[in-house]
């Protein structure tokens, strides 16, 4: 058993190690200055990226793309370990307790800090203050869509339908649920939420006309939108999204709803400055590679490579806005 298990990983490390050794010699000289007289040169060992979700989801794929780049830049292996559970809270708790030495880091979702706290007890809520943010990564926007047969083209069409709209979401405490609930409430549309376990079943139910509309991440619906099987009604970003340039934002249609998912790289609180700088440099170099840019495009992700301060500010203002809007419209996400 242990033999089989390590084989693929060992092969992988070998491959990564070999390429990494070459890149290290190439860029090592440039970067030694940034370590600022710390004790020893970070990193000397593997950097473990943990993911609070199962393999295959957006967070997992982003982590893998980033880990590969950062590992290559820093000349070490960067194994990705999946620790799914409690929407990522389990992984967050573990990361929080890990030694702040830069050898255990994780990509985390904004929704865990902005939306999940609205659905769980205060003790269980994960707080961003317990982590050091290294950099923002990318935005993963939501689109509300309906099936081509329904005939709806905009949010106003739903309003005119004059019936209870049944909408699929990707689960309780997700941005998809929040965005839809806010839209329907502020538009005064009678609606019932039907939560599904993730994007794939929500998409299936929509294609099969089991629900009237579904809100999901753009990457999940884009191919069916392009094929004309789904009609997009709105996106929930501040501005239109380059992947769906013809789709109006909710704001353009007169509804003040902005909900977005974004991800950022975190380390345990108290990680030394020089370590954070090294990681940030490596992340920036990764962001600039053509492979990574291509990865973003293929997954319909919008780069959001902002500073830690900006990430914190965005989290704070989103949390405040969501809370305020939910209160204003008297919406409870846990229905």
């Amino acid at each position: 058993m242990p033999r089989y298990r390590t084989i693929p990983r060992r092969v992988l490390m070998g491959v990564l190690g070999a390429t990494a050794a070459i890149t290290l010699t190439a860029c090592g000289g440039v970067k030694t200055t940034s370590s600022g007289g710390g004790d020893g040169e970070y990193p000397t060992g593997n950097i473990e990226f943990s993911v609070g979700a199962s393999a295959g989801g957006s967070t997992d794929l982003i982590t893998r793309a980033l880990a590969q780049g950062i590992g290559k830049e820093l000349g070490v292996s960067a194994p990705v370990i999946n620790k799914p559970g409690a929407n990522g809270a389990l992984n967050a708790k573990e990361l929080q307790a890990a030694k702040p030495d830069g050898y255990k880091i994780a990509v985390q979702n904004a929704s865990l800090f902005t939306i999940t706290p609205l659905t769980v007890s205060p003790e269980e809520a994960t707080k961003i203050e317990d982590f050091d943010v290294i950099t923002g990564i990318s935005r993963d926007d939501y689109v509300m869509a309906t099936s081509a047969e329904s005939g709806y083209k905009s949010i106003d069409d739903l309003k005119k339908a004059g019936k209870t709209i049944r909408y699929g979401t990707t689960g309780v405490g997700t941005g998809a649920q929040l965005a839809s609930a806010l839209t329907f409430k502020s538009a005064g549309i009678e609606s019932t939420a039907v939560p599904f376990d993730g994007g794939a079943p929500a998409l299936t139910a929509l294609l099969g006309n089991q629900v009237d509309v579904s809100t999901m991440q753009i990457g999940e619906g884009i191919e069916n939108i392009k094929a004309g099987k789904l009609v997009p009604l709105a996106v929930f970003s501040a501005e239109r999204i380059p992947y769906l340039p013809d789709v109006k934002t909710a704001k353009e249609q007169g509804y003040e709803v902005q909900v977005t998912q974004y991800r950022f790289l975190t380390a345990p609180k108290g990680t030394p400055e020089n370590v954070k700088t090294r990681l940030l440099d490596a992340a920036k170099k990764t962001f600039a590679t053509p492979e990574y840019k291509q990865f973003n495009e293929q997954n319909s992700l919008t780069p959001m490579e902002i500073s830690p301060e900006e990430v914190l500010k965005a989290l704070q203002s989103d949390t405040a806005t969501y809370k305020e809007q939910l209160n204003e419209f008297g919406i409870s996400l846990t229905g």
Partner: peptide
Amino acid sequence: TLGIPANATMALIFGALLIQGIQPGPQ
């Protein structure tokens, strides 16, 4: 044919296709 991953493994193959620049779906 629909771009719907039926299980966790299919979700990964979906991801692998995306990485290769191929979007699974009706087209």
